[in-house]
Design a binder for these strands. Structure first.
Lengths: 227, 227
DNA sequence: ATTACTAAACATCGAGTAA
DNA sequence: TTTACTCGATGTTTAGTAA
């Protein structure tokens, strides 16, 4: 079976858009060339090749051609469209991060326990996190890079606030699963005190205890992505 | 702005299918080559070009690469997919036939008045046609060809039957509009007594009279297509 | 105006091969 | 094993031009 050439995709798309699915539509090669951003000569060749491969039919009317797409040509385009569409929808919609547990300096724990934050946690993620964040060191570049994208993704946003002394930045939360079993949230801080290779997790309970983790324990965090 | 090259479409599709939308996925050029039915060298070049144009990011891990699609690359694919999809759905879904009125030999009128047919007309197209079909001569090849496709399309099917003398073939009906105003049906006969350039129309009333048509009057018939 | 040929430029591919 | 270079073969585009 003759396969549709990649460079003919645009040409066929253009023909379909002009209504050539069911009717012979008059179309000049120079017009077609412009619409596919190629020369008149290329358009002419495309049409000849498409005809030869049975994807279109042409009828000459004086010096002009009218073109109609065959059912073979149409079904080829439908096939292509559905391959594209399904691959766009079927990707595993989560980000996986792998790293090891490291001990934080207690800073995260302190900040996350502030009333200004806990009130919002209660209403937005439905629990007040265990006081103490889990710091995970990402060793591989690909995970460090992957973690960065959460800065631009939309998560549950905990607003910043200020007291008499200073202002506290916003916190973004992304629901995830630790080691395929424990619910947690990846938190992204507006002003982080870590370098990019360390991420912070919060959860309802003291994961370190309940999951019997120690420093350097290997961790996998999987965070679902919507959209 | 750098445009996505057509030959890279398959490569990007493959990467998306492998989950490279949100994560860096390890993929070798020889594997990728196989999946896009090109050589290892071509796959390698594709990746280099895609990276250069900002459609993917790569991270080297030992001798292997991990690849992730950038949001630019992803949106390019979404754009392409939606262009394809919308052009597949938006074509004008009708066939237009142009021709002139010719006088038939009264044959069609006779057959269509047979009880075996009229009973079915009543129940399947909700009226008994005026006794007398309208014959339209198609002069241009494109319309003759276009009319042919109704032989393979699905319409309302009036079953054939037989009496003591002979058998009568099936009739397929396609609802249409004559000269943008008059309801009619294009009928396709299993055994036609015309050459391909003549089509037959039936309708509730005597169109020849009500629309004041005479032989050689120019006619345009538009028939909606479903699917 | 058309379509389409030729010929040369340009892009893409893949075998061989280096690192 | 990798990735990616060179380079010759093949495919694609286009300017010029014929019909």
């Amino acid at each position: 079976m003759t396969d549709l050439k990649v460079q003919h995709i645009l040409t066929l798309t253009q023909l379909i858009a002009r209504g050539a699915r069911h009717n012979f539509v008059p179309i000049t090669t120079s017009y077609l060339g412009k619409s596919i951003k190629k020369s008149q000569q290329s358009a002419s060749k495309h049409l000849r090749e498409l005809e030869e491969d049975g994807f279109i039919e042409r009828i000459m009317n004086g010096r002009k051609f009218s073109v109609k797409i065959t059912s073979k040509g149409y079904s080829e385009m439908v096939k292509l469209s559905s391959i594209l569409k399904s691959s766009l929808n079927s990707f595993p919609s989560f980000v996986e991060l792998k790293g090891t547990l490291v001990s934080g300096m207690g800073e995260g724990a302190y900040y996350m326990s502030l009333k200004g934050y806990t009130k919002q946690f209660k209403s937005k993620i439905n629990y007040i996190p265990f006081p103490g964040t889990l710091n995970v060191k990402l060793h591989e570049k690909e995970y460090i890079e992957a973690a960065q994208q959460f800065r631009t993704l939309n998560g549950v946003t905990i607003k910043g606030f200020c007291d008499s002394k200073r202002t506290y930045g916003w916190v973004k939360c992304f629901k995830g699963k630790l080691n395929n079993s424990i619910d947690c949230e990846l938190i992204i801080l507006e002003r982080t005190h870590h370098d990019d290779s360390i991420i912070e997790l919060i959860s309802k309970t003291n994961i370190r205890k309940t999951a019997k983790l120690r420093d350097n324990s290997k961790l996998t965090i999987r965070i679902p992505i919507k959209g």
